[in-house]
Computed example of a mutant assay.
Amino acid sequence: MVNGSAHDGDTVLTVRPELADEELNELFSASWPDHSPTAFAPLLARSLLWIAAHRDGRLVGFVNVVGDGGLHAFILDTTVHPDERRQGLGVRLVRAAADEAKAYGAEWLHVDYEPHLESFYGQCGFRPTAAGLMRL
């Protein structure tokens, strides 16, 4: 799916599509109760890639990948609309992001997650590791 689209039924995954703030904010507001409207263009301008999932013309999933300019990339903002959850879309998004990150030259893909998401990210191919985190 390098820089293209992949179809699975009615859902289309697209790499680095143009996305309006309105559609991203609509998805994030439905998915994250504490979401505040955000200008996404500055965030995506610093991203290595992102993948969007559309069904019937509506944004139903999103994942962002940022890179360090070298071998490491990081998954951020994995989001699936509540109406689309538990159908495999999140796993498809993250696996597609991993494939694309590899195509962009990354050799390591990192993700931070809360304990209740360990099984989900395990299904995506991640294994738990020790890591450090500092809140600033």
Rank of each mutant, 00 (worst) to 15 (best):
H81R: 02
D68W: 10
V91T: 15
P42V: 11
G88W: 01
A41G: 11
V91S: 00
A52E: 06
E23W: 10
L89N: 01
R85T: 08
D68M: 09
R58A: 15
V80R: 00
T38L: 11
F74I: 06
D83F: 05
E26D: 13
V65T: 12
D83W: 03
L24K: 03
F40N: 01
A41C: 04
W32E: 07
A20S: 15
F62T: 04
I75M: 06
R55V: 11
A45M: 06
G57A: 11
G67W: 08
S36V: 15
T38N: 04
N25I: 09
A45D: 15
V91K: 03
F40T: 02
H81Y: 07
L48S: 13
V66F: 08
D83S: 14
A41Q: 13
A30D: 09
A45V: 10
V66S: 11
V60M: 04
V66P: 00
S31N: 05
V66M: 10
L19E: 08
L43N: 03
H54L: 08
P42N: 05
L19F: 11
T38V: 12
V80D: 00
R85F: 03
L43G: 11
E23T: 10
V66Y: 04
S29Y: 03
R46N: 14
A20H: 11
W32L: 14
P37G: 09
V65Q: 02
L44F: 15
F28R: 02
G88N: 02
A30N: 05
A39F: 02
P82E: 08
R55M: 08
P82V: 08
L76C: 12
D77R: 05
F28Y: 11
P33L: 12
A20V: 11
G67N: 06
F62H: 14
R46K: 13
A52G: 10
V80L: 00
T78V: 15
F40M: 05
A20L: 14
P37S: 12
G70S: 12
L71S: 11
A30C: 09
L89C: 04
F62A: 07
R55K: 11
